[in-house]
Design a protein around this nucleic acid. Sequence first.
DNA 1: CAGTGATTTGGTATAATGTACCACTTTATT
DNA 2: AATAAAGTGGTACATTATACCAAATCACTG
Lengths: 179, 179
Amino acid sequence: MVHYTKSLLVLTLIMLSNSRAAHHHHDHNRCLSAALSHAEQHCTEAGVRLTPIRRAVLELIWQSHRPLGAYAVVEQLPSILGRPIRPPSVYRAIDFLLEMGLIHRLPSYNAFIGCPFPGSEHSDVFMVCRCCGSAAEVSAETLNKSLEDTASRAGFQLETQNIELSGLCASCQQEDSSS
Amino acid sequence: MVHYTKSLLVLTLIMLSNSRAAHHHHDHNRCLSAALSHAEQHCTEAGVRLTPIRRAVLELIWQSHRPLGAYAVVEQLPSILGRPIRPPSVYRAIDFLLEMGLIHRLPSYNAFIGCPFPGSEHSDVFMVCRCCGSAAEVSAETLNKSLEDTASRAGFQLETQNIELSGLCASCQQEDSSS
DNA sequence: CAGTGATTTGGTATAATGTACCACTTTATT
DNA sequence: AATAAAGTGGTACATTATACCAAATCACTG
């Protein structure tokens, strides 16, 4: 097995396991700082700047494993930057982070969530728990293939996709049955 | 082949062919009136009322094969009802139509589109052309299965889904290549 | 290090989408 | 007709998002 293939395999496993990370307890400080340094590196390589505002917005969105609204970011930014930041600046930061693939937008919730694997090609599939609100991004080969297949059978040339699944995460299923 | 299975098969074919109807030229007056009488019947059977406002809103949303915003409906309603209808009334009608499964909401567009097969169990999958804006609802066995599969492998209990695919419809692909 | 253009941010105002609330009317059921 | 339920009218407002222009910062060049 060559290195390239192995990386892909590992990546797929990471993707699929993200749901466990998001829906379960884990060392979130470490998870957050890893994401931030990853983002830093990603921006440096791309030759763009992760300014204080952009970094703070990313931090807030990552801090929450639940989709975070733009105005929630506006409210919470002073706790990081020590001064109020107005909506236009926040939306500009959000647009930047979206373009860099560091966060995703969940249209059904008018909210944003950190992307666990920026830079890699992956489908945007989100599982949002209707009970605890946590959101996990997942990717699966077979699903991607089905999507491609369905589109091409309809003569549709697929470019981007937004897939939001709603239901109960593993933790909340247990709580339901235990009550 | 028993009747039940045959119906399912036919239904699936109709579903898949909806993309052609939406993205291509067709007798839209007939398409619209069929949808309206179908809706009328659907409501009667459910014991609910398709009032003039609700019917007019449905008509406007069906008239467009492109997702239609709520305020576009507000603007166009006078042309049908002869008097202005305010946003709250329009949203109430939209909520009713959504609950009856007669229309769907496309969150990425803050817009609504008529459902070609109300009353039948089907996944909500939409293909929206970025060129002409037309939207087609499709359903495919394999895709549904993949979704179920992906969710259950992540321990997620899938309840509802919203799938929006963006790209080029067959017509617009031809126009692209012919220019 | 000054000059210059490009990028980023500050800040006001406003657009677009959606809802809470309460009074009133219409419909369905005794 | 009396009554309850369902639907509508209309004001006001909440939430989400953007247009616009001025000021500041950064990056590059001479």
